[in-house]
Simulated assay, not measured.
Amino acid sequence: MKIYQNYLEEYTKGIIGYSPIAIIGQSCLGSVAAMFILMNGNSTIQMIQLFIITILCMFFNGAILSQQKPRISFNLLILSTVFSILFVVLNLL
């Protein structure tokens, strides 16, 4: 929990600089996840995975654009990053 608190404090202090970097990085990672998902076909399972990735990326981008509290946008960044990495790994296997 201490690591989370340290990163949250750092993100909160430099939110003006970290927000654009996070949007770019998270969007690129989400695009890679979407590419790997669609490389495995277009069945219902892949479409559900694609929906989850798209929604999480949009939630984070929306939180930044609507100037939500730093804790909310930071949590959404972590959530979208974890799911993107998870789906990339799942679709590589």
Rank of each mutant, 00 (worst) to 15 (best):
Q5L: 11
I3A: 12
S19L: 03
L93K: 00
K13G: 02
F36T: 08
A34S: 14
I72P: 01
L50F: 14
I52D: 14
E10C: 11
Y4D: 02
I72R: 06
A63H: 06
G14L: 06
L76G: 00
F87Q: 01
F59Y: 15
N91E: 07
N61A: 09
A34N: 10
M58I: 13
T81K: 04
F87C: 06
L79A: 10
V82Y: 05
A34C: 10
T81H: 11
A34K: 08
F60L: 14
G30Q: 00
M47W: 05
I78L: 15
V32G: 01
Q49Y: 12
Q49D: 15
Q49T: 11
I24C: 12
N42Y: 01
Y4P: 00
M47N: 12
L8N: 03
L29A: 12
T81G: 15
S31R: 07
E9M: 01
N42A: 11
G17W: 13
I24V: 15
Y11A: 07
A33L: 06
G25W: 12
S66W: 05
L77G: 02
L93G: 04
K2R: 09
S27D: 13
M58S: 14
A33D: 05
I16W: 03
F59S: 12
N75F: 04
Q49W: 06
S84L: 03
S31W: 02
N42V: 10
